[in-house]
Amino acid sequence: MKKFFAVALLFALALTMCGTVFAADKKPVVGLVMKSLSNEHFKKMEEGVRKYTEEDGSYELIARGMNSETDIDTQISIIENFIAQGIDVMCIAPADSMGIAPFVKKAVDAGIVVVNFDNPLDKKALTDNGLPEDFVYVGPNDEYGAYLVAKYMGETLGKGAKVILLEGSPGADNARQRQNGFLQGVEETGLVVLADQTAHWEIEEANTVLTNLLTIHGDEVQGVITAADGMAVGSIKALEAAGLGGKVLVSGYDNQDQVRPLLLEDKLAATVDQFGATNAYEAIKVGIRIMNGEKLSGWIKTPSELVTKNDLK
């Protein structure tokens, strides 16, 4: 049995080496490490990137995802496999902005060009692991996107209008950034916040939380600002059930397919598109440019755009 494993191992090793040599001769190999593929955001990203890769044709793509958002272990083993495989460029959306840093360092030490995207690595974790503080990051500015949508809501509702905020999971980086952006936009346009609660990104929980909040604030609320489209869907159902459908403005985030009809029917006022697929493709291109000798660092911003009914026409 032991012998069998040894042979199998050798065989596998030989295969990977062949692969590497083969790849080095031809196109660069790019590994894309995403978060959960059960999340529509990453699923769309994967499909988009595959399409761009086909059109581009100058590199080879290996795309990998995990089972759930917080499955750090799987992500680490993906990175380790990539190192063993000896790929050229790795673009990573870290599941944990601190915990992943040591493995990014490993990959860098193994000679792989690493580009961080979608979710920035923590600055302190970077320096603690001997990586530059301005490690190259390609991605949207969640805080800015959130600011945009909150500002839009404020301008539409007018100064002094009363709103409820539904946030993502406390502790998630992008949830925190979006909350900061919301509060900034709200303050600037003079909105009054009735309640600021989490619904953990969940549809059903957003529905429950908002229904309960409407019991208290039902007769004064004018707007609901949510940190994800799913939570917006749950909120719209809650408003309809409370007889407030169409009377209260709702905003989402991420511009998922499911909110398109809601925008068209005026049930959803606005959402934010952060262009997941182009973002990842951008990261890949940045990686290849670095591989070819260019010096790039710091935050390379990708766009965050407000989407309303008018943009769909």
């Binding site: 059960s38 999340n39 059903e204 159902k237």
Partner: peptide, 15 residues
């Protein structure tokens, strides 16, 4: 009942 309440069917619900 879930679909009746939220008018949505999703692969990630129910956690």
């Amino acid at each position: 009942l879930y679909m009746l309440r939220l008018n949505i069917a999703s692969p990630i619900l129910g956690n």
